[in-house]
């Protein structure tokens, strides 16, 4: 019984640590989801570029305007793409250059995703260890 206050303190510390790890885990999972969405976005752009390859001036297409609706359009500058660079800047590049930019972005995003997934694993393991330790204290 004499050790009870010490155990209570340790238990409180464990719970606080577990909560902090849980918050970190939630943040990392949110980050991983966002990166995954970005990877899919880049993939869509790459797929669209592949589909447009070889199309000539005047080729008819439909441009989405949202709500599953489209307007008619024709290609006026085949082989060129307007690439968003961030910071509100967009530049016209050759389709091949644009593809290289997207592929480089994808590689970077995949690296971030792998790092985030690794961190999720580590934090998850530590959280599990803390929860098991807390359970032991409760059983004592």
């Amino acid at each position: 019984m004499a050790t009870a206050p010490a155990n209570e303190d340790e238990m409180r510390e464990l719970v606080a640590k577990a909560q902090a790890y849980q918050q970190r885990l939630d943040l990392l999972q949110q980050q991983a989801n966002l990166v995954q969405v970005s990877v899919e976005d880049v993939d869509r752009a790459l797929k669209a570029l592949d589909s447009l390859e070889g199309q000539e001036t005047g080729h008819e297409m439909l441009v989405p305007i949202g709500a599953g609706s489209f307007v008619h359009a024709t290609i006026s500058r085949p082989g060129t793409v307007l690439v968003g660079l961030g910071s509100g800047v967009t530049v016209e590049r050759k389709a091949a250059d644009a593809k290289a930019i997207f592929q480089s972005r994808r590689t970077e995003l995949e690296k971030v995703l792998a790092e985030t997934t690794g961190a999720i694993g580590q934090v998850g393991n530590e959280l599990m260890r803390l929860q098991q330790e807390a359970q032991k204290y409760q059983q004592q």
Binding site: L82, L85, G86, S87, G88, V89, T90, V91, E92, I101
Partner: peptide
């Protein structure tokens, strides 16, 4: 983001069309 945009824009040809949002 600004550094990357700057780096990428510098790599673009001088006559490339550039647009601002």
């Amino acid at each position: 983001e600004t550094e990357r945009a700057l780096e990428e824009l510098k790599k673009s040809p001088e006559d490339a069309d550039v647009y601002r949002a």
